[in-house]
């Protein structure tokens, strides 16, 4: 029986077989290195090995994983919380959690990168929602734009030259989505809004928004899932 847990750390629980896996030294490849990007499977295996070393208490492995993941994780946190100081706190907390929970990572349930992104995104969204609740309490009503500025995508939006193959592939796949699906998916991932709030923001029926998110995510899966 396969059990799924809402907690991101539980969702990536490590298996016993993998725990006893090889002790091959990890590949020292940065995700953002456009030249030396290894094939996805190889990169994922390298990430998983690093996580296993972290589970054994290897601080150097954590430093290496930080070097591989910190750019996209920080960019994600910044996109969600839209505040550099808060984004740094989110990434810091996520890596500390990763250090503490590395033993629960299970590579068969997803990549180490997906796990790390989930950790960062959940923390960032928690902060955004807490901030929004505080604002609601202060104003006694929800702010009309629900506090998410889509236009504020931060610096370096076109900095594709420094991206790896995976990042370029994902960006191309997302850019190829129909605009309404793209907007719904980005709001669902980055805004921290609920389904209902996304529907209100897009001024569309909830059913339409759900269908757009599903179609967009399925297309993204078909296009890039195997690369990640």
């Amino acid at each position: 029986m396969v059990l799924m847990f809402p907690c991101p750390t539980a969702a990536f629980a490590i298996s016993r077989d993998q725990a006893s896996g090889s002790s091959r030294p990890p590949d020292r490849v940065r995700m953002s290195d456009p030249v030396a990007t290894p094939p996805p499977d190889e990169r994922q295996q390298a990430d998983a090995r690093l996580v296993r070393r972290i589970a054994e208490g290897d601080k150097n492995a954590l430093a290496e994983l930080y070097d591989r993941f910190s750019r996209p994780l920080y960019a994600t946190a910044l996109r969600v919380v839209q505040d550099p100081a808060e984004a740094q706190d989110v990434v810091h907390d996520a890596f500390v959690t990763l250090w503490e929970k590395a033993a629960s990572f299970e590579a068969t349930r997803g990549s180490a990168f997906s796990w790390a992104v989930t950790l960062v995104r959940n923390r960032a969204i928690d902060r955004v929602r807490m901030r929004r609740r505080r604002a609601e309490l202060l104003t006694a009503s929800a702010p009309s734009d629900l506090g998410y500025d889509e236009s504020n995508t931060g610096p370096g939006a076109d900095d594709t030259a420094s991206l790896g193959d995976e990042a370029r592939a994902v960006r191309a796949a997302v850019a190829a989505l129909p605009p309404d699906q793209k907007r719904a998916l980005e709001l669902a991932f980055f805004s921290g809004l609920t389904q209902q709030q996304i529907a209100e923001k897009l001024a569309e029926p909830l059913g339409t928004v759900k269908a757009r998110i599903r179609r967009a995510l399925l297309k993204l899966r078909d296009t890039v899932a195997r690369r990640l």
Binding site: Q88, R121, V224, A225
Partner: peptide
């Protein structure tokens, strides 16, 4: 699969390097 695909959206966030101090802080 969908969760893994959704996390790929992290790559669509504008590329911005975290401050060097953050690495030291984590370690």
């Amino acid at each position: 699969e969908l969760r893994s695909s959704s996390t790929a959206l992290a790559y669509t966030a504008p590329v911005v390097a975290p401050p060097a101090d953050l690495r030291r802080r984590v370690l």
